[in-house]
Design a protein around this nucleic acid. Structure first.
Lengths: 148, 148
DNA sequence: CCTTACTGGTTGCAAGATGCTACCAGCCTC
DNA sequence: GAGGCTGGTAGCATCTTGCAACCAGTAAGG
């Protein structure tokens, strides 16, 4: 058995998250879902992914509780894929990745897509890590602890 | 050419980030680096990954500017892998994934690792998405815009 | 020194994942 | 009811992943 390693039983939440959405396309599907895509064809055109790959990814996201299948909103006989509450909770992950990409992979003035406040049309403020008391923290101010 | 699709030229920052660290092991290596791992063997034992896989992942993270190779801190002839500033900027991504995993993949009381404030030993507060004005936003309050 | 263990890999092979191109069965539209 | 959309499957080639074996340079003990 040489299958891809499973980490869904790891005691680290990061590992379980990566196990659920850590493959290549899943997060981009979620990104497009946040951006309004609902139909198979929308995801396929938006991502440029092969249809068989998209099929397996959508199925695994549905199985993982990130997306759910609902009847089409336009009354046709087809169905649509929408984010569950669990899927919508991925918003900070997508925003964090977006901000990291913006900061490190684009030359100034290079064309890009940008996530903005719908009301004012301005970019979001950078994510901040804060303690329970609300004090901003850096990575060096934190430590991983085992809990049982 | 059937190689894995490259997204490093996409105009979406999320896609470029995923292209850089979106494979299975890279983010876990970064997580362990935040947790203090520096040596090849530490990563290997911490992750349980095959050595050839770890070799390629470390190389691509170094090539991508996330890790850098430095002489061993204990004076031996070996070298170590440490996060660059770009790599440390991934902290919000790791924290976001961790919080999502904690919220959705653990039964109450199930053993887990936890990220806490070093000073007080308490879990961090949940990440919040905020507008430029500091107003908390949900996914539905944002929209993606093309910039050129 | 000399031997032995550790560190940090490389190599070869088996099997799974990815991707492309057909192909196809329901819909829906005219 | 003909033709085009929608949402897939199937087959095949190639790439990636993973295990195990092997190996050179370094450190440590005697």
């Amino acid at each position: 058995m040489v299958r891809r390693t499973r980490l869904d039983a790891s005691d680290c939440p990061v590992a379980r998250s990566v196990d659920a959405i850590g493959d290549w396309w899943s997060l981009l599907i979620v990104r497009d879902a946040f951006d309004g895509s609902r139909r198979f064809g929308e995801f396929q055109r938006g991502l440029g992914v092969a249809k068989n790959i998209l099929t397996t990814r959508l199925r695994s996201l549905v199985a993982g509780g990130v997306l759910e299948v609902v009847p089409a909103s336009d009354g046709s006989a087809y169905h649509e894929y929408v984010l569950t509450p669990k899927g919508r909770d991925l918003f900070p992950v997508v925003v964090a990745l977006r901000q990291w990409g913006e900061a490190h992979f684009f030359a100034p003035g290079e064309p890009r897509s940008e996530l903005v406040d719908r009301e004012h049309g301005r970019p979001l403020s950078p994510l901040e890590i804060r303690s329970a008391e609300g004090v901003p923290l850096g990575a060096e101010d934190t430590v991983v602890r085992k809990v049982s």
